[in-house]
Structures are given as structure tokens and as C-alpha cells.
Amino acid sequence: MDPDTPPQELVEAYIEAGKNPIKPIEVSTGPVKENIIVGDDVDLFKLPAPVVHGGDGGRYISTWHACIHQDPDSGWVNWGMYRSMIVDKNKLAGLLIPYQHGPMILYQKYEARGKAMPFAIAIGGDPVVAFIASSYLPAYVNEADVAGGIRKEPIELVKCETNDLMVPATSEIVIEGEIRPHERVEEGPFGEFTGFRTTERGGRPLHRIKAITHRNNPILTMSCMGMGCDEYAALVSVTLSGEMLQILRQNGIPVRGVCVHPWGNTLSTIVSTKVPYANVAHQISSMIWGSKAGVYVHWIIVVDENVDPWNLEDVFHAVVFQCNPQDGIHVYKRTLGMTLDPFLTP
């Protein structure tokens, strides 16, 4: 697509790709198998993992990647993006928030049964991998299929060396291992996408590394998250807007557009719609908050259809001059929050 494509067109293209998924294909090998390191030879410190921000608790190797986990019951494979910090040469500590899909598989399936969960972390390679891993697709939708739809051709996957997970064959680096039940180690803090370092150092799931495979002269992709429009903010703006727009359309809301703006990424949503009946804003909010896409959203702004949700000047004008501050603002108490919310009381 043209680099100057308007954001609403990007959102529509993302929705269309999701409607036309293409399943991945398995290959016998790929560039990520050019070097295979297993067992005692594994050494995470040989990879150029940076201290991303001043004040971070350690060197973070996973900030722009795909964490790969598989549901042991359904076979559903989830690609997510969850940060991880080097503990020693063959151990990582990761922040796994319970209502993210990969962590749900760990806590509700593997740990609950006293079993170790295999995992893989795919770093670099085709940009669509990190793009789709940072999305908020519904449960039981395979991100690899949607990635194929976006590319209009299948992703090539290759089997891990120490478990049965399939990883993108063109990755720069793949880290393989397992998370054993209830093993925790200190992780954090880390400067997050909110622009704040909000999580104190604490006990988080220990990742034991069994193998590392990588290309010759691999490139370790990373994101320096924080204030401003970083990679995560830009991509989530498209994917979250698309997921929420689909939810509202499927429920018959005459919506013009949905904007999860990069400057308020993940935590805010702007919806432009016709007003078919009174109090439709409450219904819209309930639909968003009841979805995976809306699990982190705190602010929902509903404006008339004549307001472009991607034009913040128009939105601000509508809020200031059309919203009754007494009757037009509603606070829902005791809803979900998350560990990374900067306003939480320590």
C-alpha cells in the first residue's frame, strides 16, 4: 500500500485480510537454522540484548518479536508479544499478564495441570510477524493465518529443535524453551509503552532456554517504547481500530469509523457513529469492553458521524462544545485494569 494511505483505509485493509486468512506452510529448513545451539552451549549473553531505558531492571531481549504458545487441548497456536529479560545465560524472566492469550494458556492449562509449557520466541524476519503478534485477535484465531492474509501468501514455518512448535523460517533468531509450573524469578522494572516505568521488580514466570537458532550475522530487532509514536503505537492503532470496528459493525451499530490513536494507544478509543437511538454510547462501550480488543481500554469517546475520529482537533472540538460535562461523561467503576497502568496506587 502507498505510504501515505489514510489510516481508515489501512484499518479496512487489515479487516479484509482477516476475512481472507491463508494458512502457513511447513518447510524443512530456513535461514533461521543456519546456526543451531542447544544444551550447555546456549548463552543468551552472546546476543546483543540492550538495556533499553535508563532504570530498566536488566537486558531485555524480547521487545519486538513473537512469543509462540500452543493450547494443549484445541491445538490453537497463539502468537503474542510479551517482554522478557535475561536472568542468566540460559534463563529469561517474562511479564505474562493473566488475561493475555499466551499467559492464559500457561496459567489455565499447563500450570493448572502441573505441566511445563513449551514456548518459542521468534525475533526479526518478516515484519508481518511482529505486526500480527502485537494485535488483539480473538481467542482461537491463529495469528499465522491472518499474517498470510496480510501478505497474500502463506508464512513459511519450520519446526523447533527441542519442541513441536512451528516458528517463522525467515526469523533472525529463535529462542526455544519451557516454563515449568509455578517457577518464578525477579523481573523488571521496564519503561513501557505508556511512557512510564510502572511495574516494580517482582516474581514472574521463569523461562528455561533449551536452544537458540539464528541466521548468520543475525539482527536483533527491538523497540524503545515510551512517549511518542513508536512501532507498537503505530501498529496497534491499526489492528485495535480494526478489531473494534468489526465488533460494532457485527452488532449493527451504524459506525463511521473507529480510531485507537497512537498517542493514546491501547487505553483509549474514539468512535464516530450515527445515533440510531438514545444512549447508544453505553451500548458501544459495553461491546468494546466485553471484547479482547477492549480489555485495556479506559477511555471511550463517542462522537457524531460528522466528526472524523482520526482528526484529534475535530474530536477535541466535539468534546469541549458538544459534551455536557455533567450528563455526557459516565464513569464505570470496578472494571478491569492492568499492571502497566501508570495511575495505579503502588
Rank of each mutant, 00 (worst) to 15 (best):
L10Q: 11
G149D: 06
E16I: 04
T273M: 02
M227L: 06
I179W: 03
G195K: 09
E176K: 01
A17K: 08
P168T: 07
G294K: 09
E305W: 13
P7D: 08
I25P: 03
T198F: 00
K292R: 12
G54T: 08
S291C: 06
F131R: 11
A211K: 00
P325I: 12
L344M: 09
V158I: 09
P309G: 13
P6V: 08
H282C: 09
I61M: 11
V307L: 02
F131M: 14
I212N: 05
S135E: 08
G257M: 02
E200A: 15
E9G: 00
E178F: 15
P181W: 13
A112T: 09
H282A: 13
P276R: 03
Y14W: 14
P346V: 06
M244S: 01
N324E: 07
N279R: 10
S286T: 14
L245F: 00
Q283T: 14
N324S: 14
V307M: 07
M1Q: 01
Y107T: 07
G39K: 11
V295T: 14
G55N: 03
D327V: 02
I209S: 02
Y140G: 05
P189Y: 06
A318H: 03
I209W: 06
V236A: 11
T29W: 06
W79Q: 10
I284P: 01
L340N: 02
I61Y: 08
Q8W: 05
Q322I: 00
T269S: 13
D164F: 09
E34W: 01
A234F: 15
L96S: 02
N265T: 15
A144D: 11
G102L: 12
A211H: 01
F193E: 10
I247Q: 01
P21S: 13
G54R: 04
P342M: 03
N35W: 07
E243N: 06
T29I: 09
T63P: 05
A122I: 08
T221P: 00
L336D: 11
G30Y: 12
G75L: 04
A13Q: 03
I253V: 13
M166N: 05
G203K: 10
W289D: 03
T213P: 00
H214T: 03
E26I: 15
G55E: 08
I270F: 04
A234M: 14
S135A: 15
H101F: 00
E12W: 06
R184C: 07
W263H: 14
I288R: 01
C67P: 00
P6H: 09
D327W: 00
G57P: 05
D4P: 00
V271N: 02
E192W: 03
H53C: 04
V320H: 06
D164Y: 08
H330D: 07
D56G: 08
V280M: 07
P21N: 10
V280R: 00
P168S: 04
D308W: 03
G39E: 13
R59T: 13
G195A: 10
